[in-house]
Structure formats: C-alpha cells, structure tokens
C-alpha cells in the first residue's frame, strides 16, 4: 500500500499540510467556506517543532495498530486489503482509549462533538490533501520501496558529489 512518508530535512514549517487536511475534511472543501463551518474542520496531521527541528507527524497506519486493538465499539478498523486504519465517527463513543495507546499522538478530537478523529488518507482523493499541499516535497505518498529508492538516490548523489570533490583534489 501507498503511505505518507516524510523527508525530514525538507519541512519549512508552513503548515500548509495542516490547512489542506482540515479543508479536505470539511463540508465545503474550500478554505474560506471551511473557516466558517461548525463544527470546525479538524486537521489530522501535525507539524511539530522538537529540538528546533520542523517535523510533520503523520499517522503511520501501523501494521499491528494499537488504536484498532483497543477500540471497544469497533469504530476503528484496519482495512484488510488497503491496510488503511479508519474510524467510523458515527460509532465513536469518545472513550479516548485510542488516544492513550497511539505511540505517535495521532488521535485528535472533534472539539464540538466528543469524538476522536484521525487520518484516513483522504479516501476520495488520488493523493492525500496534505501531500498535494506540501510546497517542498517533504511529504511523499509512495510505496515503502519507492520511498526507500528516493532516499537511496538522494544519499547516492550526495556520496557521489563528495567523491568527485575528493577525486578532483
């Protein structure tokens, strides 16, 4: 399955991904309409700033997802085919077990209504809204092998440049 990967050295901290996420999860699907909605549309990913580093945090849709394990009402499930961990908001009772066990803190709260919200990888889009919104290519929507390939090529290019400089000296 395709997942959202993060190139950690690229984030500018503009939080465009956060806005795009909230807008995509609104009724009107446009910024200005979304800003006026009640309940307020909520984002499902977060740009954090630990140790002075800009760090987008995205649900990992874990293979053995703790949030799925603990959901007593069956609102949170992992799709057997796509591997996407989704939440049926109409079933959620707001017990916050999922929020307690998520190792990444990816479970948010719909403030006006006591339910949990989390990333659903934008089921109606070909590419999740946060990835499309990212102006620097920090967020990448790819298979794990494809992402590894991107990282490998970047690293190889860096090594090659260093090698060339050394050779020319």
């Amino acid at each position: 399955m395709k997942e959202i990967f993060v190139r950690l050295d690229r984030c500018m901290g503009c939080k465009s991904c956060e806005i795009a996420c909230a807008v995509e999860h609104s009724k009107s699907h446009n910024l200005f309409g979304a800003m006026a909605e009640t309940p307020r549309p909520r984002k499902r990913l977060y740009v954090e700033n630990p140790e002075g580093v800009k760090m987008p945090m995205v649900c990992r849709h874990c293979e053995d997802a703790p949030c799925v394990e603990v959901c007593r009402v069956g609102a949170t499930v992992k799709d057997a085919i796509t591997g996407i961990v989704t939440k049926d908001e109409s079933m959620c009772i707001g017990c916050w077990m999922c929020a307690m066990v998520c190792p990444y803190g990816m479970v948010g709260r719909q403030k006006e209504v006591k339910i949990a919200v989390k990333c659903d990888l934008c089921p109606s889009l070909m590419v999740p809204a946060c990835v499309s919104a990212c102006p620097t290519g920090t967020l990448v929507f790819a298979e794990q092998e494809e992402f590894a390939e991107i990282m490998r090529r970047d690293a190889a290019a860096q090594i090659a440049r260093g090698h060339k400089i050394k050779a020319s000296i």
Partner: peptide, 9 residues
C-alpha cells in the same frame, strides 16, 4: 499550487 492558505487569508 497549492498556494499558502495563511497568505491567502
């Protein structure tokens, strides 16, 4: 595109 929503607002 997409242009920054903070700037647009």
């Amino acid at each position: 595109k997409p242009q920054c929503g903070f700037g647009e607002a």
